[in-house]
Design a protein around this nucleic acid. Sequence first.
DNA 1: TTTT
DNA 2: TTTT
Lengths: 174, 174, 174, 174
Amino acid sequence: MARGINKVILVGNLGNDPEVRYTGSGTAIATLSVATSESWTDKQSGERQERTEWHRVKMFGKLAEIAGEYLKKGRQVYIEGSLRTEKYTDKSGVEKYSTDIVASDMQMLGGPGGGEGGASGGGFQRERPQGGQRQQGGGGNYGGGYGNQSRGGGAPAPSAPASGGGFEDDDIPF
Amino acid sequence: MARGINKVILVGNLGNDPEVRYTGSGTAIATLSVATSESWTDKQSGERQERTEWHRVKMFGKLAEIAGEYLKKGRQVYIEGSLRTEKYTDKSGVEKYSTDIVASDMQMLGGPGGGEGGASGGGFQRERPQGGQRQQGGGGNYGGGYGNQSRGGGAPAPSAPASGGGFEDDDIPF
Amino acid sequence: MARGINKVILVGNLGNDPEVRYTGSGTAIATLSVATSESWTDKQSGERQERTEWHRVKMFGKLAEIAGEYLKKGRQVYIEGSLRTEKYTDKSGVEKYSTDIVASDMQMLGGPGGGEGGASGGGFQRERPQGGQRQQGGGGNYGGGYGNQSRGGGAPAPSAPASGGGFEDDDIPF
Amino acid sequence: MARGINKVILVGNLGNDPEVRYTGSGTAIATLSVATSESWTDKQSGERQERTEWHRVKMFGKLAEIAGEYLKKGRQVYIEGSLRTEKYTDKSGVEKYSTDIVASDMQMLGGPGGGEGGASGGGFQRERPQGGQRQQGGGGNYGGGYGNQSRGGGAPAPSAPASGGGFEDDDIPF
DNA sequence: TTTT
DNA sequence: TTTT
């Protein structure tokens, strides 16, 4: 359980192709660099200004694999995740902090190459949700699959109603 | 998979105790009425105005059970979910539309009874996330458990790395 | 001030060109129909399923004008707004409810025509924020300008339609 | 205008009273330390784990003043803002990065002292929105006022510190 | 009514 | 390092 909400939503463009690595146990880890930018006209100078913010986004497991396969430099993406700040000591012994966004959901948007990138692979479809819930919040993007795994730790909650358990639509008293 | 993001975030108070029903197969379904309000001063009359928006929120499974057990009228909650509009025909044969928020996450906030309501029950804890991902977006609230079940359909995605699979912290190349 | 958060975030495609109308006082009102969809494989039948959710989005003022000018059927958009449910009586005297999303921010995403649609008009740039705050939350999209006006009252943006200008409720063509 | 969405939503508790400073031109700047935490049961050890994430949140102007007046250590808050990473060189000449959340909206939630903290001050009410728009996204919280000023430039709210008022970068005590 |  |  949580005490708190720690949520980040980004829509931006990749500055580079994703970097994908694998852990000893074979879990993919992707790192993305995502730019969000804005521009405005300076009131005093009247000049056009621009500021770009770069976000380091980490993805794990299936989501990382999809990122590695379909995302490319320049591509526009929607990312949902949470902030995680890590403290580390660099080679010179200096303590530093680094803030990442750990993605729980990702969705490719239009843009360069935007058209062809749909995850057509057979492994990513979502299965029929239980509980009469055809529709799911935030839902249905590539994070769906990995979200499962990562949010709740692999096994379904013990108390979850058995799947395939005769939940008929006309049972649903909406 | 999805084409699109359909996300609602509410922080509001319950107008009533949740109504909980059960499907034939035993899945709990809770309906909540959540108020979000705002007030402002009318520019012309200078009078104080207020508008309250009432949201009908549906929850399923474990999340519904927690709502039924811990949420009470007046309680302040955080809700995350998605919009679902249903078309139905009322008793007099009139076609109507009804828009619900299907919750994927919920978190009790302070307020009346706010202090004691933490889900202390043993069944709701999240298990250790895999993939070196100690932390999860939005995550970690009561929706975590049910999110699993509902987002991906019970069983973990087949391709998920085996849990308990020797994923050591020092494997994580952050 | 508010007691509560009432926030909607959509990424979807327009089912039609926006409909733009004007109030008696000249404020533009745009209505958009935005689809978010998802698909999954039914666990029992093994068949591919799809569900599309249609959202009615309202925009006002500058934001509505930009929508009318740049958005087209098929276009992918990011929308941020809030839920507003209206009760009304139809021609046959039946009470009905209708839930809209009142947009406070909008951003055109890639997709059909995605490349050319940037708001190049001279009136929409943001000026230099004060307070050392170069960067602003959510900020910087087309909603920025109108958000000003609508979120805080205060001094309407110079280009905003004059307030107090006979904007009667029955002018509102919802 | 923007190309991108950079949005953070937090619900957490303050680790300390806010620190409030003022720039040379009189703009308030508040720094908050907000904790979001989650706990889970480690699958291997079966032990209870907890991880707390600390977020540094910056507020400016009116929002900062409200924070300074009403927020206290332990208080639960809703924060909406955007990520901003600053590069700086510490005293020993080491380059470091620091990631803040620049708040655009804030709302006090229940909790210690949660009941009494409503912004009763006369200056914060929102005025009647124009355009038939009684209701506003996310809107209506304390960020409304300052959001105006910071999001769009345009005409600063009347009570906003004078723009162009010698707010130099080296005034900014980040 | 969109999109993939 | 992206994008417009």
